[in-house]
Design a protein around this nucleic acid. Sequence first.
DNA 1: CTCCCGATAT
DNA 2: ATATCAGGAG
Length: 213
Amino acid sequence: MKPAAMIPVVLERLREKYPDAKYELNWNTPYELLVATILAAQCTDERVNRVTATLFQKYPGGPQALADADTAELEEDLKPTGFYKQKTKTVQAMSRALLDDFKGKVPSRMEDLVKLPGVARKTANVVLNTAFQQASGIIVDTHVARVSQRLGLSKQEKPEAIEADLMKLVPKEDWTFFGPAVVLHGRYTCIARKPKCAECLLNDVCPKLGVAA
DNA sequence: CTCCCGATAT
DNA sequence: ATATCAGGAG
């Protein structure tokens, strides 16, 4: 089955299983979502939510508090999310850039967002799709990348190239659903190490590329 | 391409 | 022992 013909099937079945697929990160403001998304690199949402729950109480009011925070102390706060020195540096630099260049407000344009330290298209798309209801693009994280390759929707390796392929295939009105839904499918069914092909809702249309028989 | 970080599955 | 986990920077 050709990729273009698979898309309606994929969308229909994912909608049935995950009717209201959305990101499981907790947030109250675009800024909180941006920080949470940065912290989510190589880390589960559940762990991020535990950290941010106390983090935004301790550093309230947006980017100023985190920009001004003591770095060593913030490192301890972020430690459970892994890559904590890197993430501390990134979150503080991003917060300062927000204050310096955007009056402390999270910009709602892709071209502005990706200028922020620690923000590339994946993170920007999460913020735009989720907080600003904007179909700026399709979120391509490790799950979306893997599932897209296995389904034969893209043969590319780089996330940006995969996103470009997907944007041609998936109708724009489905972009904000496609990302989160495929993430869930990738996390719970089309698992990296040991995909559950037997119980997969797409196993009849999947070419099973890259999956051990 | 490597590094950042550490836990867990295989 | 190695791969992977909601990536991005140098």
